[in-house]
Structure formats: structure tokens, C-alpha cells
Write a protein that binds this DNA or RNA. Structure first.
Length: 171
DNA sequence: TTAGTGATATCC
DNA sequence: GATATCACTAAA
């Protein structure tokens, strides 16, 4: 069992998103219990012109993290009650990231995943390959990966909403 | 289908 | 200071 390090995330976002599907996210809770959830779905965001990426409309304090170093966790509060978790990928200085969209089993939704592993604002800005509370593990198993269009981003227009940048592991 | 929720960005 | 927007969920 090995932890994914900076080199894993320091690559093209589509590659990272595809390979991240099927990996395990581990979370050490405050009571020292360790929760492990296999990642079932990911989505790639960002790139030069991706209108669905938060950073596409301009660099702001909130999106500053997206331009940062690969492996950094970007946590975003959506609709006032849902935490969405992303991991920054690619070169520093480019707004790229991968959204963790679902976990194995009943965790069919990005906010359910973060709720299950107790991720919130406190993790925003942490590096996932350099702390003892949360990390990603590779247990050596590999899965068939399906692709599909991203969801929930109709505002970005058909061209971007239709990109097959969603990766689903056939667990 | 619709309500609920709050941070953020963008306008005064 | 005010308002519009939003990478969602649960209940119906």
C-alpha cells in the first residue's frame, strides 16, 4: 500500500483524473479512526479555456489555490451546505484540478463523499501528499474506466459541458 | 420539481 | 451595503 505523492498529481489533469478513479482516499478522523473510501468517480476541471472551471473567469482569492501547487486540496462550499473537494493537478501557475465526485457504495454525490470523510473548509489549502489527516492510497488494484460528460455545469455552454472529462471506475 | 443554504463576486 | 449566482441534496 503506497501513498500517492506529488509526482502523481504533477501531471496532465485528464491523466490524473483517470488514474485517480479506483484509488482509495484515507481519512484519519479526530477520534483516530481511519476511514477508507474507494473513489468511484472523478472529473477534470481547468485548462487554458475551460469555462466550467471556477478560475476561467479570472484569478480571485478563492480560485488562487487552483493556480497553486499540484496535490493541494481545494474545498469549495456549494449552495450553502455542500462541501466539494478537488485536488490541484498539473503545472504550478495553471488552473487545473480534479473533482472527487463519488465514492464506492452509497456515496453517489460529491457532497456525500466529503460528508462521509469529514472534509470541510479546514482542509482547503492543505497538500494531500503531505499531512497525517488525509491522503490517497494505491492498493494496486486497477479498474475499467468509463468516461462521460461532466454534470452540473450547463452554464458553461454545450461545448464545455459536453466534454467527456468525467471518469467512472467500474468497481 | 422545489426548497434550503451561505460564501463569493459584482454591483452600487 | 445589496444582490445574483452556484461543480448539490433530500423530500415530494
Amino acid at each position: 500500500m503506497k501513498r500517492l505523492d506529488y509526482d502523481f498529481f504533477h501531471r496532465d489533469r485528464l491523466t490524473v483524473a483517470k488514474e485517480l478513479a479506483g484509488k482509495i482516499i484515507a481519512r484519519k478522523m479526530p477520534d483516530r479512526e481511519i476511514i477508507r473510501v474507494r473513489i468511484a468517480e472523478t472529473e477534470a476541471y481547468g485548462g487554458e479555456e475551460d469555462k466550467a472551471c471556477h478560475a476561467s473567469k479570472g484569478r480571485t482569492p478563492r480560485t488562487e489555490l487552483l493556480y497553486g501547487k499540484a496535490g493541494v486540496i481545494y474545498v469549495y462550499l456549494c449552495y450553502g451546505m455542500h462541501w466539494l473537494m478537488n485536488i490541484i493537478t498539473g503545472e504550478e501557475g495553471r488552473p487545473e484540478g480534479v473533482l472527487l465526485r463519488a465514492g464506492e457504495g452509497k456515496l453517489s454525490g460529491p457532497a456525500k463523499l466529503t460528508k462521509a470523510i469529514g472534509v470541510d473548509k479546514r482542509f482547503n489549502g492543505l497538500s494531500i501528499c503531505d499531512n497525517e489527516e488525509i491522503w490517497i492510497e494505491d492498493d494496486g488494484k486497477s479498474f475499467e474506466i468509463s468516461t462521460a460528460p461532466r454534470v452540473g455545469i450547463d452554464y458553461a455552454g454545450e461545448e464545455w459541458a459536453g466534454k467527456p472529462w468525467r471518469f467512472i471506475a467500474n468497481i
